[in-house]
Design a protein around this nucleic acid. Structure first.
Lengths: 192, 192
DNA sequence: TAATATACGGAGGCATCCTCCGTTTATCAA
DNA sequence: TTGATAAACGGAGGATGCCTCCGTATATTA
């Protein structure tokens, strides 16, 4: 959502917008691969901008995490709406859950960062929680309505279970395992 | 290849032992206050030794975490034995549980560190688990034997619950909350 | 007390963090 | 178009942290 502040200001410069997007993409890649403490200068290099530009757009490491996280949440929300058109509701649900694995990397980093810096924007938390629950409900209800899966699992429990699955995996190279667990779990939801 | 000669080694130097202890104390303080990524040079400064000395005693950040953690576990084990002499078993149990809050800071850091470096010494994990369970059992059994608390809570469940309480607290300044929760929980164990 | 094994400190090379500011450029009014 | 200027850009630079290396200091042993 774009916000317009009272000042009749100039149009934002196109290079500024472009660089912001490049930085966001680069940060998503770098953080997923290298973890929380990846170098911000590496992010700037990957984005092909100067370090000063990075700091202008995201004054703190935490601000960058927040932006990455919010972006991922939005992507997942959009993906759910897209998958809701699918013919196979259970498959749609499974695809969405597995897409989450990508997010978790970012989320892990962000939680750390927020704890550290101690201004964990609860607005962001609330926003993302709503968005995630909404996405799950959208996909789950369709599968339930078709009679494909059991009807006694509320979206909230599903989300909590997911987080549990992701966090219980401690080691590196956890993603394949997590994907497998999601697979098992969704099969468990199915009615025989 | 030359063969290593087995020689009767000298006694360890007293300054070496002293510095090792100073480093351990300093690291405990610094990590508790500043978290995982606190500066190792700060630890050395606080201990009043050179940075080289720190690295000689603890070649990696992880080695230092391990040593701090093991030390804390030992202290808690000893504390349990001491509290076991107390006249009020439930109070002893509560005191011990609250003493744990200190440990958690170190533990959080260590888990991170171990995950990152991916050689999480499982010997250390096993050791600390045994020691913790032993401590809880020691205190719990006495309270049960006196009929002060319910008898259907095994030590393992108590430990898991504790960890859950500590980890569910996300924000900074979590310690007061955690202490309060422990208080509530122990009261819940009491028979009316 | 002398010999020597052992530990000590910190300089130095490299990486990252973050700020500051001179330079470049997109926007807008004329 | 063009010139003025607000806005964004890049990266040098100072501070700090990581870790290694090695000359110096000292505890232990004979």
């Amino acid at each position: 959502m774009e916000q317009k502040i009272e000042k009749a200001s100039r149009k934002p410069r196109v290079d500024s917008i472009r660089n912001r997007e490049r930085l966001l993409d680069a940060a998503t890649e770098i953080f997923s691969a290298g973890g929380t403490q990846a170098s911000l200068e590496a992010v700037a290099r990957r984005a092909g901008v100067g370090i000063g530009t990075l700091y202008r757009h995201f004054p703190t490491r935490e601000a960058l995490f927040e932006a990455v996280y919010r972006h991922e949440v939005d992507l997942l929300g959009d993906l759910a709406e897209q998958l809701a058109g699918d013919n196979e509701p259970v498959e749609g649900l499974k695809k969405w859950l597995q897409a989450n694995v990508r997010l978790v990397a970012a989320k892990k980093g962000m939680i750390e960062a927020l704890q550290l810096a101690a201004h964990g924007s609860s607005e962001l938390k609330a926003y993302s929680y709503e968005r995630m629950i909404g996405a799950i409900r959208l996909l789950l209800d369709r599968a339930v309505a078709r009679g494909d899966v059991r009807d006694d699992v509320p979206p909230e429990d599903l989300l909590r279970t997911l987080v549990g699955i992701y966090y219980s995996q401690g080691t590196t190279d956890w993603q394949p395992t997590a994907l497998r667990m999601v697979d098992v779990f969704v099969d468990g939801l199915r009615k025989r």
